[in-house]
């Protein structure tokens, strides 16, 4: 499908034919670019529309004649959402919870990942299977029993419950991915350290961790994005507005500020921006991580 598709007749013989072939190839390339660009715009249209809507003054949002780009660009909706609503506190809550749960799952998970990557202990296979199976259980199924447990523990409407739940739910994936990264590090490096008399933990901290930096970063970003976006547990566990995370805070705008789509679009923009930034920054890593076997769970 690559070059052959552009040159089905094989190599042209005469110079005239060569020129004809060149211009044909040029046209096909041009067609491909035009088509791909059009397709990109169609596929990304809802996002472009969200961005454009968030920069329009409220009057333009509900105008009879819509324009693709704002006639008058303004940051009014961002200012309104940041100063006139509880959005800043939702943002802060989300950030706190995402940082704490990500740290918990990455720190706990990296030791487990190292153990299954390097130590041949009994039950290693069973542990790996447990991780895979745990990954399969739907959140919607676990939310009822977890709600009962959290309620009994008196942790409803607290961030602690969410932090621990998010960490536990990110763990199977975190361990699985990190195991893959650790396995790519040559074992001889550790053997040398072991000869020098360093213990397992010391070897891990001094030799493996610094080398696994990129992998750790990718896993950390995955876990962070997960917590940042999570909706169902936050919806069920949190009750007062002051505790809300961004996803449920934004969803609650629909009732609180009916028809204020300017606020909602600006809020959606604020939730999306950090994620989009991380993604574009780490795009190659993320794609490689995705294709490295384990896919988002």
């Amino acid at each position: 499908m690559t070059d052959t598709a552009l040159n089905p007749g094989g190599a042209p013989r005469s110079e005239a034919a060569m020129n004809a072939w060149r211009s044909r190839e040029f046209l096909m390339r041009l067609g491909l670019y035009l088509f791909l660009s059009a397709l990109t715009i169609v596929m990304l249209f809802p996002i472009l529309w969200m961005a454009s809507s968030s920069f329009k003054p409220q009057s333009e949002l509900f105008a009879r004649d819509m324009t693709l780009l704002p006639v008058k660009w303004t940051l009014d909706s961002y200012i309104a959402v940041w100063q006139g609503t509880s959005f800043p506190s939702y943002f802060l809550n989300s950030f706190k919870i995402a940082v704490a749960s990500t740290a918990l799952s990455v720190i706990v998970g990296m030791y487990a990942a190292y153990a299954i990557a390097r130590i041949k202990f009994r039950g290693r296979y069973a542990f790996g299977m447990l991780l895979l199976i745990a990954q399969m259980f739907p959140q919607i199924m676990l939310v009822i029993p977890l709600f009962i447990v959290v309620q009994k523990a008196g942790l409803l409407n607290t961030h602690v419950a969410l932090i621990v739940c998010y960490a536990a739910f990110a763990l199977p994936f975190t361990v699985w991915m990190m195991r893959g990264f650790f396995e790519t590090i040559p074992e001889e490096l550790e053997d040398a350290a072991a000869v020098d008399g360093a213990g397992i933990l010391k070897t891990f901290h001094k030799i493996i961790l610094p080398l696994a930096g990129p992998g750790l970063a990718a896993v950390t970003i995955f876990a962070f994005i997960r917590s940042w976006n999570e909706f169902l547990f936050a919806l069920v566990f949190l009750q007062s507005r002051t505790m809300f995370t961004m996803p449920i805070g934004l969803a609650s705008f629909q009732e609180e500020y009916t028809f204020r789509w300017d606020l909602i679009m600006a809020g959606a923009g604020i939730i999306t921006l950090p994620i989009l930034f991380f993604f574009l920054l780490m795009q190659k890593f993320i794609v490689a991580g995705l294709l490295g076997g384990a896919v988002k769970g």
């Binding site: 542990f127 447990l130 447990v149 536990a168 397992i200």
Partner: peptide, 27 residues
């Protein structure tokens, strides 16, 4: 090393059992 492995996986095991496996039984 094998004994160490147990301690390394223990926190992960506890979290997963407590928040993903036990709730199924509770459910």
């Amino acid at each position: 090393r094998k004994r160490m492995a147990f301690w390394l996986i223990l926190p992960t095991l506890l979290l997963i059992v407590a928040f993903k496996i036990a709730p199924i039984a509770e459910g």
